[in-house]
Amino acid sequence: MSIYRDNIVGFMIRPQVAISSCLMGERVRYDGQHKRSAYLVDQFNPFIEPLSVCPEVNSGMSVPRTPIQLRKTDFNIVLQDVAPPHHDHTASMQRFVLKLIEQSPYICGLITKSKSPSCGVTDTPMIRDKDNSVHYGSGYYVRLMRRECPHLPVIDDKAVLHQDYRHRFLLHCFTLGRFYQQVKINPENGARSFHNQHHLLFQSIDPMKSKELKQVLELWANGKATQQNYLTYLAHLLQKPFRVHHAFKALELFISQQEKSLQSSLRVLFKTLRRQDSDQWISALFAKHISQLSSQLTLDQIGDNPFFMPYPIELMAAAN
């Protein structure tokens, strides 16, 4: 995870994001080909720290190779070759995932290839041994990562092109990256500093869940919860549906707590936002508007508040 200078928000982190290698243009697929994503390589990657991951190759499979599939037995899910003798790759994939987590403890999100038996998020076919019926869900690598790291956001190459899905993913990634950064810098008080810095953002998503997250933080501080408990609850909060009235209430409260010299500019921002057709707003549009207005009004005093700039504004542009 690295840091770079941003003219609006000062120092912006580059969260580490694990991306399926085929989407990076690497010829790692079973047929020796790739599925390069121009958006990820050209628009997205300059603002994050990409970690190329092909779970199939990294767990020992060759290129090219026999296609693999997920099968549901009476006892578990297995990853095996489609063709006889149906070599089983389940254990090698499990070993790879545990090694990946150990070697890369600061991964902030996963971007994976749709429909892949390893990397699919919702559309991987799985065959039931009982009746050979086909069901759809997550690939085996994604299943394992979600089990071991339930706090990580996951998105596939199709969903990342969708404005609102991408916003939710980026919001989660960059928030998690700032958490890791602050805890690394200050092991004793970094988590509390992080939480205070993000309080307005949390309030704007869900005031009640924000309050509950603060309680988890206190339990952690008193040894009655863990960092993983906090991060898992944080993930639940960041996945909540966007409600613009929560965002406006949080902004109103923030304005009332500022010095008078800043309040006037913030009220201009607030009134401008309210004049928009907020009934049509999705979370990505709201973030884009508030980031652009903050820049235009040169509100430098709020530069470190992730509510106004949760991630680089360049990533708010449409995916080409």
Score class of each variant (00 low, 15 high):
E259D: 13
I19M: 08
N58W: 01
A287H: 01
L269K: 06
K158V: 10
E102L: 14
A235H: 15
Y106A: 08
A319W: 04
M145R: 05
S92G: 01
S265W: 08
T122M: 12
V121S: 02
R128N: 14
C22P: 07
H199K: 15
S264Y: 11
T232M: 13
K288F: 09
C149A: 09
E56H: 11
H135Q: 15
L262G: 00
H198F: 14
T73D: 07
F75D: 14
S92P: 01
Y140M: 14
A221G: 03
A191Q: 12
R27S: 13
L217C: 05
S261A: 15
V78S: 10
Y140Q: 09
G120E: 03
A247E: 07
P117M: 02
P306S: 08
I107W: 04
H246L: 05
N189G: 13
W220K: 15
I77E: 13
T272V: 02
I77D: 06
A191N: 04
L231Y: 10
Y311R: 01
A83C: 09
Y136S: 03
Y180M: 14
Q16N: 06
A18H: 00
K211P: 00
F307Y: 12
R36A: 07
I8N: 12
R275I: 08
Q197L: 09
A250R: 05
V53A: 07
S20T: 04
